[in-house]
């Protein structure tokens, strides 16, 4: 059997990875909570952001952490434009249509990446990826620690934005009562697009935090979209604290089941949780109602 040290180390590593999963899921759950749509293109958008980070490094030598100030606003603008000019007008307000349009977008983005970069897997070479921090008996990856702390900071910023600013108030108003929000003069189309933009901006940050330790290829979005959906469903669709808790839980489950079952079967834990939560408690741990 595995010694407790190894299992605890796997759990800590799971928590660190889980924090980034939470950040990836944050955008998904925000968009669901406000627009009531499932953005199937979320994973493909993350892949695009990771390629952007990789490209900035390979082309201009920009450090992934510095790239945050470039990638985040660009992806906010991209998300804003997508919702305002593609998803919103094309869907005619039908939820089923939105799901299919975002599916179409995910196929389009994924294959556009494949056509431009080929199917090779790429990573950013750096010494930092291998540096570790000693914490008692455990060795922790510095880049993963930075990623986890960064993710939690972004989650707190999100929470402040939602609760302390006028924009956040408008977003919450639209989420609660669309028609009422329109009646008091809120531009609902604009708020929708801002929300979608914020979701994509979170992906931009996540990509910058992931790239020092992770790799990217055009198909990487599929792996993340499964994890992100599981996180969101587990935490409760539309719940920000739920996304954080769900991310941390899924990170630990993935890490521990990977250790016990091996790399290829390890993913099973995630799908089983996903199916069980959907079947038994579709409101998730923190969600109010479906």
């Amino acid at each position: 059997m595995f010694s407790p040290i190894i299992i605890i180390e796997a759990m800590i590593n799971g928590l660190l990875t889980g924090a980034i999963y939470a950040l990836v899921a944050l955008g998904l759950t925000l968009v669901y909570g406000v627009l009531h749509i499932i953005n199937f293109a979320h994973g493909a958008t993350l892949a695009a952001a990771m390629f952007a980070v990789w490209g900035l490094n390979a082309g201009f030598g920009i450090d992934p952490y510095v790239a945050i100030v470039i990638v985040t606003p660009v992806f906010f603008a991209l998300g804003y434009g997508l919702q305002r000019f593609v998803i919103g007008p094309a869907a005619h307000g039908d939820d089923g249509n939105i799901l299919l349009i975002t599916l179409g977008l995910s196929i389009l983005i994924e294959n556009a990446l494949l056509a431009s970069f080929g199917s090779d897997t790429r990573s950013i070479p750096s010494d930092f990826a291998f540096s570790v921090v000693e914490a008692g008996p455990f060795l922790l990856s510095s880049a993963k620690l930075v990623g986890a702390v960064g993710s939690l900071v972004v989650a707190i910023l999100f929470w402040l934005l939602m609760t302390r600013t006028d924009t956040g108030k408008a977003i919450r108003a639209v989420a609660r009562e669309k028609l009422g929000a329109r009646l008091v003069g809120i531009n609902v189309g604009h708020v929708y697009a801002v929300t979608f933009g914020l979701g994509c901006a979170a992906l931009g940050v996540a990509a910058c935090l992931l790239m020092p330790t992770f790799y990217v290829n055009p198909r990487i979005g599929g792996a993340f979209v499964n994890i992100a959906f599981t996180v969101v469903v587990l935490g409760g669709m539309g719940s920000v604290p739920g996304a954080v808790a769900g991310g941390l839980i899924i990170g630990v489950v993935e890490s521990v089941s990977g250790l016990l079952l091996g790399e290829s079967l390890g993913q099973i834990g995630i799908f089983i949780i996903f199916i069980l939560v959907l079947l038994l408690r579709p409101t998730g741990l923190f969600g109010a109602r479906v």
Binding site: I101, L103, L105, I107, L108, N111, A112, L114, A115
Partner: peptide, 12 residues
């Protein structure tokens, strides 16, 4: 992937 890009555009 070019054919799949066409499929996706047609779908949208």
């Amino acid at each position: 992937g070019i054919d799949l890009m066409v499929f996706a555009v047609v779908l949208i």
